[in-house]
Design a protein around this nucleic acid. Sequence first.
DNA 1: CATGAAAGGTTCAGGTTGTCAAATATTCAG
DNA 2: CTGAATATTTGACAACCTGAACCTTTCATG
Lengths: 148, 148
Amino acid sequence: MSNEPVPVSADDLTREVVDLMAGLVALFHREYEEAAAARSLTGAQAKVLALLRRGPMPMRHIAQTMSCEPSNITGIVDRLETRGFVTREADPQDRRVKLVAATEAGQAATEELRKTLNFAREPLAALDEAERTTLRDLLQRILTGANL
Amino acid sequence: MSNEPVPVSADDLTREVVDLMAGLVALFHREYEEAAAARSLTGAQAKVLALLRRGPMPMRHIAQTMSCEPSNITGIVDRLETRGFVTREADPQDRRVKLVAATEAGQAATEELRKTLNFAREPLAALDEAERTTLRDLLQRILTGANL
DNA sequence: CATGAAAGGTTCAGGTTGTCAAATATTCAG
DNA sequence: CTGAATATTTGACAACCTGAACCTTTCATG
């Protein structure tokens, strides 16, 4: 039915990997959302809070990293601020920009969430250390290959 | 500082893999959302449509697969139906259930979207066939290890 | 120095996603 | 036939997200 050796199977392999990743994405997403909800955070709020682990960040930067409109971040940060997880301060260098910083409570929440993510334990337990290393290297190469 | 051989590094490895997966998930999510938006579908709509590739499905089943409330699916299917991507028909076996089926247009849309997903090409191009096979096997084991 | 363009945030209107509780219709057990 | 259980829908409400309009601050240019 075909004169070519393995072009179809190579394409199939790629598609198979993509499908598996879709499954992984769904699983990860579900777990993350649950872990956030357990702390009465939404997924978006948890993501913003996680971004601030390394220090304060301007709204604009948050929006870019989450690839959404800045006006969207305003609301999310509003809700985080209301609950005391985050503060907004004007940047002394450029008073147009607001620096968003996680409070102690905010830091604690992300740290706990990070620990609670049992995604690490359950599905990853199937792999031994060597395999996890291989997986890490493959993922690293995929991600550095991407434009971000 | 420690009597044990590699417990810390093993934990670090796991966390590293989890972080990489988070990056992968973010990347995949972004690409999927973009590909859907290019066909003026939302991510949720595209996901439901993709579920119907193998045939009609009751609302309840869609809700379970997407792990959300059935009432949520009602709205999504409403919008898909309005745009002619989907039909709702009562199941003859049990007239309580509504079978949702993709129309021709719906099938075409998912098929195109599936092809457009250049996630397959760009970041995965960094891996040769053997590596992709390894990745596939590792992902398969992770996903079958999970409870779904 | 003044003026106007550009950039960072916010606000507002409008649409989608999501939850929960209540209502409807159908099935099924007794 | 009655009542419990199931599948879906409806309505109220909150969060997320976009796009356009707006305000403030910065900065380049004349």
